[in-house]
């Protein structure tokens, strides 16, 4: 592709990494993060992931600030909620830091904060593993690297185009039912009533749409042969291997370092609130 290089620089280096390599690089660390209980390790991981994302994907400054603000807010909220959820008998020896209409102890805050940072780090890794991936790249990579049948890979991607239409259908449906004089109460009861009524017509419309789409795809030869031509076949290049190795090595280095500094805390029990 003559303009492949231009596209790559415009969309950042992360877009040039094989989508399957990105998943391979980020999924194992993401799973391991589940077992950490300290603040430092996930925080360092989140930091490195953030640096990789910012350098690898062209983000507008506004998007960056909005993202940072969202992470801080969600982080603060998660910290507070998980701190309050911590079993009080586990933290009764630790000093009280807030004592008003709620009582918060330092150990509870630490537990809440570590959960929040852990979630943030996992989110960062998930973003690192998916940013810059287009649906076409992903489909091609799934077919070539994961040996998934192309009918399945491309079929699922075509199905995703249903989402905007589904939203439109839902809006029309709500208006149509309101015109019949339905007034649902606010809150969960109204929500369930509304959803229950929408399901059958939406499923009927969805099934019709799916039939039409699959007919249109068959009419254009989808599934005619066991393979299909790929204009930009997904390949594994040296940079993909380097990317995976770098992420894994970096992650291991973080664990070793925090472990040696005595900061790392690990629990095999996912329910362990420590």
């Amino acid at each position: 592709m003559s303009d492949g290089h231009n596209t790559a620089t415009r969309r950042g280096w992360l877009a040039t990494i094989n989508p399957v390599a990105k998943l391979a690089a980020t999924l194992p660390p993401l799973a391991l993060l589940l077992f950490t209980r300290d603040i430092a390790t996930p925080a360092v991981v989140a930091g490195f992931a953030l640096v990789a994302i910012v350098s690898g994907v062209p983000l507008r400054l506004r998007t960056l600030f909005a993202g940072a603000a969202a992470i801080l807010l969600v982080g603060a909220w998660t910290t507070l909620v998980f701190a309050l959820l911590t079993r009080s008998d586990l933290v009764k020896d630790s000093p009280i830091i807030i004592d008003g209409w709620i009582t918060l102890r330092a150990a509870a805050m630490h537990s809440g904060a570590s959960t929040a940072v852990r979630l943030a780090a996992m989110m960062m890794l998930a973003l690192l593993g998916s940013f810059g991936t287009t649906t076409n790249q992903l489909a091609s990579a799934l077919v070539h690297q994961c040996r998934i049948p192309y009918r399945f890979a491309y079929g699922s991607i075509a199905a995703m185009r249903f989402a905007p239409r589904y939203r439109q259908d839902l809006l029309t449906l709500r208006a149509a039912q309101r015109a019949r004089g339905i007034i649902d109460s606010a809150g969960p009861v109204g929500y369930f009533l509304r959803t229950g009524r929408s399901i059958i017509p939406l499923l009927a419309a969805g099934a019709r749409y799916a039939t039409r789409l699959s007919l249109a795809m068959d009419a254009r030869g989808f599934g005619a042969f066991s393979s299909r031509s790929d204009r930009q076949p997904s390949v594994v290049r040296a940079r993909d291997v380097i990317f995976v190795m770098t992420v894994w090595a970096g992650f291991a280095a973080v664990f070793v370092t925090t472990g040696m500094l005595g900061l790392l805390s690990i629990s095999g029990d996912l329910h362990d609130p420590r």
Binding site: Y154, A158, R161, R165, Y209, R212, L213, L215, A216, M217, D218, A219, R220, G221, F222, G223, A224, F225
Partner: peptide, 19 residues
Amino acid sequence: GQLAGKVGIVFQDPDAQVV
């Protein structure tokens, strides 16, 4: 799918043909 080279089809709904 194997007849796609023999018969081309255009359906009624423009939305449900975009893949």
